[in-house]
């Protein structure tokens, strides 16, 4: 029984790790300026975690193989204590894991800080994002470069007034451009402001390595720079109700020239 356990544990560990190592299922290619650092942080963690995982499972398997009773007869070999007792365990765990924590924290904090603790670069394109049950809408300032003021009491899906604009009195609102696809220029930073209309939602673009919750009552800033033109998915990752699984939008990264043409071709909201 002990040998079987050892074989099964070893097989599980090796098959699991192989599928990780072969990248059979893996992250889609990164299309952002900051994502490379997240990926290398993930890879570094993967290597360390993989080694710890295999080492622990193999040690368990080897000891169970070596020190397990066989064939229903009571073992008679002398019982031995682990050399050095508990002390090496404490030392190994504290030093190994401690160093790993230190490295991961120092490197990881920088990656985190570059996205979440620094302001967007100057000249970033400002886009408002509104999340509601169960869609995203995006707003560009329009010709006047100014965003109309948001009035919750004016918000109406029936009128297609998703952002609650008041074009009757607010002239800056009339030329705002509201679309259901997030179109961004490549290699130019975009600064988003995340508005939640009803409940919690989340902004997740796998390829751009970016995720951030929308919280009702808060306007949350988020910035990133996409590098590769293409069409990607933006999905909601915070449970928001029955249509959560179908809450998505597409992100289109265009060359700056194409982006300029696209923006010019858009109709104002009112």
């Amino acid at each position: 029984m002990g040998r079987l356990f050892a074989v099964v544990v070893t097989a599980i560990a090796l098959v699991s790790v192989t599928l990780f190592a072969l990248h059979t299922w893996w992250l889609p290619p990164d299309i952002s300026t900051h994502g490379g650092r997240i990926d290398s942080q993930l890879n570094e963690t993967m290597i360390v975690a993989g080694i710890l995982f295999v080492a622990a499972q193999l040690a368990l398997g080897v000891f169970v193989w070596r020190f397990g009773e066989r064939g229903g007869t009571r073992a008679t070999w002398p019982v031995r204590i682990f050399p050095g007792g508990a002390t090496p365990m404490v030392v190994i765990a504290t030093v190994l894991v401690g160093i790993e924590i230190l490295v991961l924290t120092l490197v990881g904090s920088k990656v985190w800080a570059s996205v979440y603790q620094s302001p967007p670069p100057p000249g970033a394109l400002q886009i408002d994002v509104l999340a509601e049950q169960f869609a995203f809408y995006f707003r560009y300032a329009g010709a006047d470069g100014k965003f109309g003021v948001i009035h919750p009491e004016k918000m109406s899906d029936a009128d297609q007034n998703f952002f609650g604009l008041d074009p009757a009195t607010d002239t800056t609102a009339r030329d705002d451009i509201v679309v259901a696809t997030l179109v961004v220029p490549a290699n130019q930073p975009v600064a988003l402001r995340l508005h939640a209309k009803d409940v919690n939602h989340s902004f997740y673009v796998r390829e751009a390595r970016i995720q951030q919750d929308f919280v009702p009552g808060m306007v949350i800033p988020l910035h990133f720079t996409a590098t590769t033109p293409g069409r990607y998915e933006l999905v909601c990752t915070q449970l928001c109700g029955l249509g959560h699984y179908n809450m998505r939008a597409y992100v289109e990264v265009k060359s700056p020239a194409e982006f300029g043409q696209w923006l010019k071709a858009q109709q104002p909201a009112f």
């Binding site: 992250l27 650092r37 997240i38 942080q41 993930l42 963690t45 991961l104 924290t105 990881g108 904090s109 990656v111 985190w112 996205v115 979440y116 989340s202 997740y204 796998r206 390595r209 970016i210 995720q211 990752t237 915070q238």
Partner: peptide
């Protein structure tokens, strides 16, 4: 780690 959680959260 917040940095890797950016991708894996949710």
């Amino acid at each position: 780690q917040p940095s890797t959680d950016i991708y894996l959260h949710g």
